[in-house]
């Protein structure tokens, strides 16, 4: 691994993000809808001085990450395949894994930038109320960790095809599956190995504790290893595409 190679790809992709409207639109929708969730939660009959209000629910940050990450990542490999620039990348003196990591970091950076736009929610809470700080920090950690998994899945989808729409749909399907896994698990026999496994994979279950300020190393390991797993698979797919 060569840091300079990764950095080259990373910077290029970030520049591309800023030169197209997609990233701006995604960020605007994200900030708008999470703001809406946040406003509802503090306006409710039992307002909580927590950030949980903007994280959960159909317009909450978690679900928006599921829905919007594919739009952020679909371009990354699919467009290179379509333009033929993949041939340049794969014949440049850099490793496939460096390409994958650089692209991952670029989309992840955009995601972090988008998350940072929601920081005024906790600031408002601190200004007007007296929230517990730890749950806010762990909740953001959960958001960031989930974001990294989502970007890795999005990248995987993009590496499979030269069609951006197909890439987005495939990534969305995988993300929804992981998101709904805990719900799917309730349909099976509690206690069976399968149900436990599906529950273990569920994004939801691993996020819940984090939003309450409970920092469990198992949750962190879960997110990091899932990210690493999807990045590894993406790397192998890029390598396999050379054979075609």
């Amino acid at each position: 691994m060569n840091v300079r190679h990764i950095q080259t790809i990373w910077m290029k992709e970030i520049r591309t993000y800023f030169s197209s409207p997609i990233a701006y639109v995604i960020a605007a929708v994200f900030v708008g809808l999470t703001g809406f969730s946040f406003a509802l939660s503090v306006e409710s009959r039992f307002p909580e001085a927590t950030v949980r209000g903007f994280l959960f629910g159909p317009t909450g940050a978690f679900f928006l990450v599921i829905l919007m990450t594919p739009a952020l990542t679909m371009r990354l490999f699919a467009e290179e395949a379509k333009l033929g620039t993949m041939e340049l990348l794969l014949t440049a003196p850099i490793r496939d894994s460096e390409i994958v990591l650089g692209k991952f970091l670029a989309a992840f950076t955009m995601m972090l930038a988008m998350f940072s736009l929601t920081l005024y929610f906790p600031l408002l809470l601190i200004w007007f109320g007296d929230p517990e700080i730890l749950p806010i920090l762990t909740a953001y950690a959960g958001l960031v960790l989930m974001g990294s998994v989502a970007v890795a899945i999005g990248l995987l989808g993009s590496s499979l095809t030269s069609n951006q729409i197909v890439a987005a749909v495939v990534s969305l399907a995988v993300l929804l599956l992981l998101w709904l896994a805990s719900f799917v698990a309730t349909l099976g026999d509690p206690g069976s190995l399968w149900v436990d496994f599906i529950r273990f994979l569920s994004l939801n279950d691993h996020l819940r504790d984090l939003t309450f300020g409970i920092l469990d190393s198992r949750d962190i390991v879960y997110f990091l290893s899932l990210t690493a797993f999807f990045l590894f698979i993406t790397s192998r797919i890029v390598e396999m595409r050379r054979w075609r």
């Binding site: 300079r4 190679h5 080259t8 790809i9 290029k12 520049r15 591309t16 030169s19 197209s20 333009l83 033929g84 620039t85 993949m86 041939e87 340049l88 990348l89 440049a92 003196p93 850099i94």
Partner: peptide
């Protein structure tokens, strides 16, 4: 002749240069 159509000639060449180290 694969090129990034949304880059300028200069941007493209400097990216290719950076890729080659």
């Amino acid at each position: 002749v694969p090129l990034y159509l949304d880059m300028t000639v200069r941007q493209y060449l400097s990216y290719m240069g950076a890729l080659r180290g």
